[in-house]
């Protein structure tokens, strides 16, 4: 694409990209470290993740201020307008990913003294790996303004939903086997839900990128993969 006649405008827009990359990198790291803290039952790492969320929030604030200034100064149009709106939306999603990582770290802290059921941790590990690679793909698609890649990220979210559904069922069984497991299992279930929600934010990001690049919305609703809201335990 041609550059803007006004060079400083070009630089202002590039700054948005670098802030998104920075924020995305942090969110990815927070997510994997939150899970590490849970897996390794490491309260100090969990504390660090909890404290680290503030950095993501502050980049989001910087981005918002920056966007307000650009709108006031430049009155962006077309692709630039879509980028600015996209940046706001993506940074909102990344900020939520940060919150979810922080929430998982809090749970890691709460259950650190207890021993975790191995198969569940393995399942969660899969989920985190998938969620963070999806997030990374989405961020790469943003950097490359690649609508195709965003679309494949968008489609891939169902895998994460499937993993979540099976962990959900396993944890139910675990709880039914012995009511003393309920406290721990509930934390793990919320942990799994947190990762599944990260997937949803990644999907939002993919939709935003698709719109930013093509100017068209991904309209047909992605089939909802989390079926647990309609699952009931029959005693």
């Amino acid at each position: 694409m041609l550059e803007h006649t006004v060079k400083s405008y070009e630089e202002e827009l590039k700054l948005l990209d670098s802030k998104i990359a920075q924020m995305g990198g942090l969110a990815e790291r927070q997510l994997t470290e939150a899970f590490d803290a849970l897996e390794k039952r490491d309260p100090r790492l969990a504390e660090r993740v909890i404290a680290g969320d503030a950095a993501i929030d502050s980049i989001e604030h910087e981005l918002q201020e920056h966007v307000v200034t650009i709108i006031a100064k430049r009155q962006p149009m077309a692709i630039d307008l879509r980028q600015i709106m996209g940046v706001l939306s993506i940074s909102g999603d990344l900020e939520r990913v940060g919150d979810l990582a922080k929430n998982m770290a809090k749970r890691a802290l709460a259950i650190a003294p207890e021993s975790h059921p191995k198969p569940i941790i393995t399942g969660l590990n899969h989920m985190v790996e998938l969620a963070s690679s999806q997030l990374k793909d989405a961020l790469d698609a943003y950097a490359a303004r690649d609508a195709e890649r965003a679309l494949s990220v968008w489609h891939a979210d169902s895998k994460l939903d499937n993993l979540y559904n099976s962990i959900f069922r396993e944890l139910l069984t675990h709880m039914m086997e012995d009511p003393r497991n309920i406290g721990l299992s509930t934390h793990l279930l919320f942990g799994a839900k947190n990762i599944e929600r990260v997937g949803d934010h990644t999907t939002n990001i993919a939709e935003t990128i698709h719109f930013l690049v093509t100017g068209r919305k991904l309209i047909d609703d992605r089939p909802k993969g989390d079926r647990t809201s309609s699952t009931l335990i029959k005693g």
Binding site: M1, L2, E3, H4, T5, V6, Y9, R74, P76, M77, A78, I79, D80, L81, R82, G215, R216
Partner: peptide, 17 residues
């Protein structure tokens, strides 16, 4: 102003001429 079809329009309205 949000999604023109022609690249020349895009370049003009976004100040890339």
């Amino acid at each position: 102003f949000t999604n023109p079809s022609d690249q020349r329009t895009q370049d003009y309205i976004t100040g890339r001429f």
